[in-house]
Write a protein that binds this DNA or RNA. Structure first.
Lengths: 347, 347
DNA sequence: ACCTTTTACTAAAACGTTTTGTCATGTATG
DNA sequence: CATACATGACAAAACGTTTTAGTAAAAGGT
């Protein structure tokens, strides 16, 4: 018959006091054994572990968090949910893969991951005591959430850099310049001589760096440039609109279109075909962000896969390193994958 | 110059002791004023509120959680992440809408929502102290996670019922019988005389009830039945396979196919068209779960929208009611929306 | 033999908040 | 006048764990 703590308000759960009593040692010794601190004889250590196991003892995270000053929970900034599929360039697919990997990585380090909805609805520092740090995605220039967290002294890691904050190096993500030019090189190798860019309008580093990469690449290859800025939120409709303007206007039409977002690319493809263009024969299409839409369109669209699983994992690991006081180097540059598909004449 | 607590390990944050000192009252009085308990004179109350506001005081959730025995965090069971897009019948779209609404609802009640990844990877009760209760989705018959949580005495609400546990009424969700027959009625009103069912293989109430509804509906209308069970995880490929078996076999072909999952429906549509069937002229298609694939296919597929936002909200609210000791009635039946689209001849 | 260091262990404080228990005073009622 | 109740307030305990500070004994070095 198991004798539980006779004090307290948590019926049925063993406390460290119960373990100490049954093992015949102090609570300090139990804590030391379970946390690998202090010293304990081998016999004592074994006895404590056996009792803890038998009582199914588990430290109470509230108590532990209070004493340690750490909660064991990381916050994941979940941008405006009423705009699902719009804010996130690659749609919900990307975010789920990212969040999933982040949650699993956190768990592997014994941490929980809390969803923090729409920071514009509440003061994100409201949870500042409840989480050890935050992961936020794609900061815009002088990102207000990032600013607030940094001002509050909250550890934070972002996916992608803040273009207005070059001194902030705690971020993970791809080298957008390199990856963008990699796709452009592919388009050129497939015969493209007039590549147009369909960019987004968010003032984040991804957009900024990709456009800059496009322009310098075009200069280097003596190619004319043509850029349209369409809000990410316009999705496939935005892509259709862009296709009409690129392909049906007076100006020389491009023979390839590089779209920042997968949803724009799907719309471009849809409209180009409607206008009678054969893809990839008449027009090549590629995108900087793989998504369901680009994988399942006909023809499937060549895309950069930003591998959100890697971003999620790396972001959590960097944040944990920061929390442990490690001076791990940032930023952490992650490679993207280039999926060559039928839209560029690839199998 | 603000004088902060001179004890403690949380630099820069006001504690309740600081507020008490500056307001010239005890910490008990501050706690009572801020939590609406005990008694305090109007003058004292005003003074305390003013000081707390000036010091930007916020209760430390660890300390509060420890003393109250409640953490202010709800857990959201996030099923196998390595199967994103497969476990969830409607794919990631559904889950994000659900999780988003749940997180926002929790926040509206001052609570956080924690993602608990893949219960098969860890003991879900690991977090039992760290959360006040759980929301889990689509329990299978005698669901192991539900069982474990109930055994551990953890408050839990599920979306959909456990078909093996009729006594468990803390669930929210649609009336699958009614909603299924509603779609079937639509198919019949569009001239269908031979409706086939493409069901999933998960032994959850959604599948069980929908198939039962289909069979009784067909009996009532003197219609022949034809059912295929294809794993949800097969997605569009599973739908394509099913279409071949329904439409190209020796048996009388159906003139309508009701698919449980949107991804199956998209696959059925794809293959039916490849086989030369015109939708909706030769064949009607509908699904019990709206998704991106059903909204964006050509023609768009008539679908039941389970409105995951409503489920997420209702689940969190029911869980909160339970935590507050309220005997709110369960289950909470939520209506679905029927989106009539081109696949059934609707605009 | 003596001094220093290490091992093994303990009691108490600390973390920040909420709840419990108590006291003094004033008011209403029988 | 005596009693009961309400108001306003306070000190201390409670929640469960980790860390701090300390001691006795054993081990190692000179």
């Amino acid at each position: 018959m198991m004798r539980m703590s006779e004090q307290g308000s948590t019926p049925g759960r063993a406390t460290i006091r119960d373990v100490a009593r049954e093992a015949g040692v102090s609570v300090t010794t139990v804590s030391h054994v379970l946390n690998g601190k202090g010293t304990a004889s081998e016999a004592t250590r074994r006895r404590v572990l056996a009792v803890a196991d038998r009582l199914a003892y588990r430290a109470h995270p509230m108590a532990r968090g209070l004493r340690r000053g750490r909660t064991g929970v990381l916050g994941l900034d979940m941008r405006p949910l009423d705009a699902i599929g719009s804010y996130l360039p690659a749609g919900v697919d990307y975010f789920m893969r990212f969040a999933g990997a982040a949650a699993v990585t956190a768990l592997d380090h014994g941490l929980g991951l809390m969803l923090v909805p729409d920071p514009t609805r509440s003061d994100i520092t409201q949870f500042a005591h409840g989480v050890d740090g935050y992961v936020i995605g794609d900061p815009v220039r002088d990102d207000p959430v990032l600013t607030r967290l940094l001002d509050a002294g909250v550890p934070v890691v972002s996916v992608g850099r803040d273009p207005g904050r070059p001194d902030f190096t705690d971020w993970v993500g791809p080298d957008d310049t390199y990856e963008t030019q990699r796709v452009l090189d592919l388009l050129r190798s497939r015969g493209a001589e007039r590549v147009a860019l369909l960019a987004g309008t968010d003032d984040n580093a991804w957009n900024v760096d990709s456009e800059r990469a496009y322009r310098s690449w075009a200069r280097r290859h003596d190619m004319p440039t043509r850029v349209l800025h369409i809000p990410e939120a316009d999705g496939e409709d935005g892509g259709r609109d862009a296709a009409r303007r690129f392909l049906a206007g007076k100006r020389p039409r491009p023979d390839a279109i590089y779209c920042q977002t997968g949803r724009h690319a799907a719309g471009v493809l849809d409209e180009a075909r409607r206008l009678g263009f054969s893809v990839p024969r008449d027009l090549l299409i590629a995108t900087g962000s793989d998504a369901q839409q680009t994988r399942h369109s006909v023809p499937a669209i060549t895309a950069l896969d930003l591998v959100p699983e890697d971003s999620g994992k790396a972001a959590v690991e960097l944040l944990i390193a920061r929390l442990n006081g490690e001076t791990a180097p940032g930023p952490i540059i992650l490679p993207a994958k280039l999926w060559m598909r039928a839209s560029t004449g690839d199998a």
